[in-house]
C-alpha cells in the first residue's frame, strides 16, 4: 500500500509506474519478518523527517505503540532485539550514506540472517527508501501547484 498522496499522484502522472510500484510494495513484505520491515519503514520516515509517513497506518504488520514511539532511541531502548538492532543499524547507514556501506555492516546482518535473507532485506529497504523519497519529492514539488 502506497502513501495516499503518492498513490494519487502516480496514478495521475505516471500510470505505467503506478501499477508496478503498487505490485512492488505488495511484494516487499515477503522479504523478511514484516514486523522488522515495519520498524525500518518507521525509522526511514524519522530520518527523512516525514511526519506524514510516520503517522500513517502500517501498510502491513503494525508494531506496538511502545516500539513505534521508541524507534528513534533504538540504540538505548531495551525494547528491540538483536536482530531488529542489526536491521535498524543497516537502515540508518543505507538511508544516510548508501555508498559508505561496509562489509562490517553486511556481516552484522549475516550474524542473524542467511545471505538470501540479507539480499531480500536490502531489496525491500531499497523499495521502502525510494517510496518515501519519491513521496516527499513529489509532495514538495507538486503540492504548492495543487493548492
Amino acid at each position: 500500500m502506497l502513501a495516499p498522496d503518492l498513490d494519487e499522484r502516480l496514478a495521475r502522472f505516471a500510470p505505467e509506474v503506478h501499477e508496478v510500484i503498487t505490485t512492488l510494495h505488495g511484494e516487499l513484505w515477503q522479504a523478511l519478518d514484516p514486523e522488522i520491515l515495519e520498524l525500518c519503514r518507521l525509522r526511514i520516515a524519522g530520518l527523512q523527517g516525514d511526519g506524514r509517513e510516520s503517522a500513517r497506518p502500517a501498510p502491513n504488520t503494525p508494531v506496538s505503540v511502545e516500539k513505534a514511539a521508541a524507534i528513534g532511541d533504538w540504540p538505548d531502548s531495551l525494547l528491540f532485539s538483536d536482530r531488529e538492532r542489526a536491521c535498524l543499524a543497516f537502515t540508518e547507514q543505507f538511508v544516510g550514506d548508501v555508498a559508505g556501506t561496509t562489509q562490517d555492516d553486511v556481516d552484522a546482518l549475516l550474524a542473524h540472517f542467511s545471505p538470501g535473507e540479507v539480499q531480500a532485506f536490502v531489496s525491500a529497504l531499497l523499495a521502502l527508501d525510494q517510496h518515501q523519497r519519491l513521496a516527499l519529492g513529489l509532495r514538495t514539488v507538486l503540492a504548492p501547484q495543487e493548492e
Binding site: V20, T23, L24, G26, E27, L28, Q30, A31, L32, S114, G116, E117, Q119, A120, S123, A124, L126, A127
Partner: peptide, 10 residues
C-alpha cells in the same frame, strides 16, 4: 531466492 516476487517487481 527468498522473495522471488520482490526481485521480479523491482
Amino acid at each position: 531466492p527468498v522473495a522471488p516476487g520482490l526481485g521480479r517487481a523491482i
